[in-house]
């Protein structure tokens, strides 16, 4: 078990190195001159060359990569040209904001999806099942930006109950918690719709298994059958998918963050990419890959805990 985790961590480290190199090379090969970017279109070529030398960009690629990695390992990811700050300062701040939004959303999404998925799937084609089914497919098929704009129109413009943006400062007169309501709602509605149908389908499959019949014919009540025999089995399949949502919540929230002007990680990546802010893109990619691999490991371990048939 420990050996397995150790081996996975080692694999993670190797993968991260590989990814860092690929991203570094990719950025190296994209057209556009960093110094030119910084100085603007009207700078003289002399000045650009001078800055290039100053930034050390004229040295060979491998030297710069080794130097970059050496600094990265100590937490220094270089200087952002858009934010005019060290990357680390911007990124950890943004990552913290996003993790906050992700955690709150995740804490809502998971119980909601399991509850409704199980309730719907335990009696296939019951009225509740049909209702949940329609509701979840509607939720999952409305794009985030549409739902965001819709909720903004209702709660901000019309009812004036909630703030329209979430800059995470109280300068606008809204308490911080109230700024979370709408972004979390949009993420939850979109994502839970998808997860509910995953859990429901798995529950439906489990309820058709012979061991459920065994349990019923033991003389158990339906409630006992569902809680003792069906639920754990029904969560095995959706478990990985549930964890995959963490990846989405960390790096896929661009739309929601943009709609609500939320200072998050996704929006930072988008802005950096548009502005060719290579230092941020590189560091951000590493973080995103790290998160993905971490959830994968957590998924494997959780899988093993849920299903005794899987052992290492």
């Amino acid at each position: 078990m420990l050996r397995y985790v150790g081996r996975q961590l080692l694999n993670m480290a190797i993968t991260l190195f590989a990814v860092s190199f690929l991203v570094f090379m990719l950025n190296e090969l994209t057209p556009g001159d960093v110094a030119r970017k910084v100085l603007g279109p009207y700078a003289l070529q002399d000045q650009v060359d001078q800055l290039t030398r100053q930034m050390g960009l004229d040295r060979p690629v491998y030297v710069r990569y080794i130097e970059y990695m050496g600094k990265a390992l100590t937490g220094d990811f270089g200087e952002s040209i858009v934010y005019r700050q060290p990357v680390a300062a911007v990124m950890w701040d943004r990552l913290r904001n996003t993790l906050l939004l992700a955690t709150v959303s995740f804490a809502v999404i998971v119980p909601v999806s399991i509850l409704f998925g199980v309730l719907a799937g335990m009696r296939e084609r019951s009225r509740l099942d049909r209702a949940v089914n329609v509701f979840s497919s509607v939720c999952a098929s409305i794009p985030e930006f549409a739902m965001g704009v819709f909720l903004l129109a209702v709660f901000v413009v019309w009812l004036k109950l909630l703030p329209g943006t979430a800059p995470l400062t109280s300068s606008g007169g809204w308490p911080i918690w109230s700024q979370f309501v709408l972004p979390v709602a949009v993420v939850t509605i979109y994502d839970a719709g998808y997860l509910i149908s995953m859990v429901r389908q798995s529950m439906v499959d489990v309820m058709r298994q012979p061991y459920i019949r065994t349990a019923i014919l033991k003389g158990m009540t339906f409630r006992q059958v569902v809680t003792r025999h069906a639920m754990r089995n029904a969560l095995i399949t959706p478990f990985t998918v549930i964890l995959l949502q963490l990846n989405y919540l960390v790096s896929g929230l661009v739309v929601v963050e943009t709609v609500f002007a939320y200072p998050g990680f996704g929006r930072m990546m988008l802005e950096a990419a548009l502005a060719k802010d290579i230092a941020i893109v590189e560091a951000g990619t590493l973080i995103a890959v790290g998160v993905t691999m971490f959830t994968q490991l957590a998924g494997d371990l959780g899988y093993m805990a849920l299903d005794p048939r899987i052992r290492v």
Partner: peptide, 8 residues
């Protein structure tokens, strides 16, 4: 095999 709960 399928009549017994696999995770219990």
């Amino acid at each position: 095999m399928s009549s017994l709960n696999p995770v219990m």
